[in-house]
Design a protein around this nucleic acid. Structure first.
Lengths: 177, 177
DNA sequence: GGCATATAGTATGGCGCCTAATCATAAGTC
DNA sequence: GACTTATGATTAGGCGCCATACTATATGCC
């Protein structure tokens, strides 16, 4: 019952051989990555039968929230990918009949993306099963487990580049206040 | 100082609006994913200056361990990717002068992959800095922190498809014994 | 020896993501 | 009104990964 992936085991092996001393931290890091990878795999496997990827599901879900339609630009912002990526994802979703694109009247550069009935139905049906599945990953966790895990994750996150930057930004904004 | 990504915040928002009840588990799941993603990003950023990706680094490192050279097949197994993927990675690494391919004498289907001096040097130099960086993510964690985090991750992992399968396999093998 | 089968490596095409470049349209400035 | 700049969407090209389908070689069996 080994969580870790082959490649990470090899890395740990080598570190141990060198008597690195930090192998416990290595293993911990790889466990986090392995859990996230397992979740990603499961997610992809659950969406694939519907011809959807995780990224496409996010777009579907975002559009579902805003029935008036959205521009590719806003979708990119909210999904956290580039506009170019959104173009590609929309191509696929349009091809598969989940949505349609129409040119905006007032600003002819803009495109309005709107879900088709099929898209609406898929978004509605998938959101529930999807969130239920995610929640089930942490079945058996009580509030104390959750807080402990969350706190430890955040401590590690503050040591990443993104985390450090966020900490700096927060500190700076507190000084200005 | 928000760990979570845009798209995940939107999902949590919607779940809360629906009074889902399981939003705490959702958030936890997304925190795990966000930490892993942050680590991946940092890793890629550290390797990019050397013209290496994470996958390429793994191959470099595996080859470094076995100075006699390795076949693409074995590399794929040990790295946990398909043979086709290895072909692509080797193409890039060969182009950039990290290694060379030569046909095996005894089995003419086989190819022997061997690091070039540049490849050896890169592997040697990068392994240390890389593992040190990974370990630094969990700086400040004592043994008890590590065990707590590891245990919680494993509990969640056992709820993934891969984890469930591993548990079943383990149980089956215990019965046979 | 001859044939089925397994194995090694690769080519091809797809997906998701990126960056950089392109093109159309809007908006601001003189 | 003309010019610059900003903005929206897309295209082009690249990377890493995959699955599938090939080619070449090896091996087992009759």
């Amino acid at each position: 019952m080994e969580i870790l992936e082959q490649k990470h085991l090899a890395l740990i092996d080598e570190a141990e051989r060198r008597g690195d001393g930090a192998t416990a931290n290595l293993r911990l890091c790889f466990e986090v990555i392995a859990l996230a990878a397992a979740i990603d795999r499961d997610c992809a496997a659950r969406l694939a039968p519907h011809n959807l990827s995780e990224a496409k599901f996010v777009l579907l879900f975002l559009l579902h929230q805003l029935p008036d339609g959205l521009s590719p630009h806003e979708l990119a912002d909210r999904a956290g990918v580039t506009r170019a990526t959104v173009t590609g994802l929309l191509d696929g979703l349009e091809r598969d009949g989940f949505l349609g694109r129409q040119q905006s009247k007032d600003d002819r550069r803009k495109v309005l993306v709107r879900l088709s009935p099929k898209g609406k139905e898929a978004a509605r049906a998938l959101f529930d099963t999807h969130t239920r599945w995610i929640a089930s990953l942490f079945a058996g966790f009580d509030e104390s487990d959750r807080q402990t895990l969350s706190a430890l994750i955040q401590r590690a996150w503050r040591n990443t580049d993104g985390g450090r930057k966020a900490v700096r930004t927060k500190a700076a904004s507190e000084i200005t206040q």
